[in-house]
Design a protein around this nucleic acid. Structure first.
Lengths: 333, 333
DNA sequence: CTGAAAGCGCTTACAG
DNA sequence: CTGAAAGCGCTTACAG
């Protein structure tokens, strides 16, 4: 079926080892012989068998990437895309897997990757899953932005806390006094950032956390009602997609953004820059994160696990502005 | 380092073959012996080496997926995500690669996948690249929505032509008479669909193609000027992202959608459903496409290459409506 | 500069 | 029901 090195060697009239040397350049071969081997290889469409090489070299040059379960946001995609590019540049291939529904299924998936992927990069990890059980597997694991509590593995994190705090501070500076956050319960970094900024805000500021089941457009839209009830004049959404879902709600109800409600999001999706008004957001340090993750994934796992944190960046746009009808301005700074 | 089958066998006090049978269930083993082997395997954290298995079985259970070069749109992501899920269900792993800049780099990538990926699914293929050269490689290739001319490979296509025609017909039905299409030059299916719908429109309809360099938000925004010059009262954009980029242009210039200009897009991005006004678009038959692609990828490549076409579906929303200031209504139907 | 041998860790096919 | 042998296609380490 497929051409083997042996077939090339026979055609070129040399030993299999000489053919191997000529093709890989791993040793001295007479120029004339090398030419003959190359010609034979081309003619037979020879391509080396990666499985055989992996077996012998005990290195498969494949890195696994576990993405979020329902991979549909631009932010996760950008990261996968950057990882793939960086890994390829490092001579590695990218094996993609979405996070399974259950821990057992994940273990099964990772077991099936043994001898295929030497390292696995997680882009998502449910906080309730027993991460220490991964030690039973031979791969090297690392976690990007998984907000893992355990220090047993390498972790690379965006500083969500200060990113969110910067966005909320921006809302306060614009004179907002009834500030909500919409997001999921388990987003520890965002919660802390939100609370931190409010703690420094002083008196006269009301806040509320509105819990959403997901992070999608529909979840932001669904939060509209609770935001109205709270009479929010500013909202921080855990994702840009939620923020843009709320844009739709506001439009249907005739709520002006940022006149009545100022809005900030998180992720820096391309759609936000073109939304009306353009969405103020917090951008991930993706380039740094990915570069470091690939470095780590390729280095031997000997050193102590590290926690590496990169800062997020506030992207100021139009969705935070002067309120139409500023209330309690006198109590503000 | 990693535990081998031999180590498990020794610990359990059986032959390597018996251990193998017990673990894979591939033959009869006495219950008592099987239990001993299982216990040894668990204790030693044994996981089989996939490279060795691939080598012996001459099947690696990995399917490669080549995505667009700048993987940033939701539509491509959805497809990758669906492919990954369908492949996993079929017991396969997904190797991801972004389309390289040059054909030579692609060949290099595919060669490095030999013995790793047995089939490769293309989600993008530049029309100018010599697809026939892929025959020199041992993998099985198939193409999803690549608008490939060559019939040498299996192709699965969305019927873009009738999808676009349906959208344009919808624009005509709403009384529009100056209809533009914004997209890239090489989108053959979309061009044909556009022309087909206009051919049936009869007299009194003006049309224009506005060529864009890309398919992103910024490209749709940039087309705004040319659309104004043409005095378009309707536009079909090759992607939803472009359409939403134009939303921003229209907002800045005070152009009403759909009052002054009706808009339709292609891809059914989630953002379109929440845009203001909600975007009329054409949806890909992703589920069918992906199911068929996986079926094909796993079946032996013996049969003749096929062209399989699935219909696109028009999603009617708010961005096509009654014009504010209908002109030439009397000449319309 | 070149070749014969051994082995990576499994599984297939055979013999007990 | 169990084991000894052979081999997948390459590469490492050695001997010429």
């Amino acid at each position: 079926m497929a051409t083997t090195l042996k077939m090339v060697a026979e055609k070129a009239g040399v030993s299999i080892r000489t053919a191997g040397r000529a093709l890989s350049g791993s040793g001295p071969v007479k120029a004339e012989v090398a030419r003959r081997v190359l010609a034979a290889a081309r003619e037979l469409h020879y391509v080396p068998n990666a499985a055989a090489r992996s077996l012998k070299q005990r290195a498969c040059r494949i890195v696994g990437v576990i993405s979020e379960a329902n991979l549909q946001n631009e932010c996760g995609l950008r990261r996968i895309s950057l990882l793939e590019g960086a890994l390829r540049e490092a001579g590695r291939h990218t094996l993609l897997g979405a996070l399974p529904e259950s821990f057992e299924e994940l273990m099964k998936l990772l077991r099936s990757w043994t001898g295929i992927a030497e390292s696995v990069i997680f882009l998502a990890w449910p906080s309730s899953w027993p991460v220490e059980k991964l030690h039973a597997l031979p791969q090297r694991f690392l976690f990007i932005d998984c907000e893992l509590e355990s220090a047993e593995f390498d972790r690379i994190e965006t500083d969500r806390t200060s990113g969110v705090a910067a966005a909320v501070t921006e809302l306060l500076r614009a004179g907002r006094r009834r500030i909500a956050r919409v997001g999921t319960d388990h987003a520890a970094g965002r919660r802390t950032g939100f609370e931190q900024a409010l703690a420094e805000a002083g008196d006269g500021v009301e806040s509320r956390f509105i819990s959403s089941s997901g992070l999608e457009f529909a979840d932001g839209f669904a939060a509209g009602r609770a935001l109205e009830e709270f009479r929010a004049d500013a909202v921080f959404f855990d994702t840009d997609r939620m923020a843009l879902g709320f844009y739709r709600y506001a439009s249907e109800k005739g709520i002006s953004i940022p006149g009545t409600v100022a809005v900030a999001g998180f992720d820096d999706d391309a759609a936000g820059a073109f939304a009306i008004p353009a969405l103020t957001t917090v951008a991930h340090p993706d380039t740094e994160t990915v570069r470091r993750a690939v470095e780590k994934a390729l280095s031997p796992a000997e050193s102590e696990p590290e926690l590496i944190v990169y800062p997020a960046r506030l992207v100021r746009r139009e969705s935070i502005g002067i309120p139409n009808n500023p209330h309690q301005q006198e109590t503000g700074k």
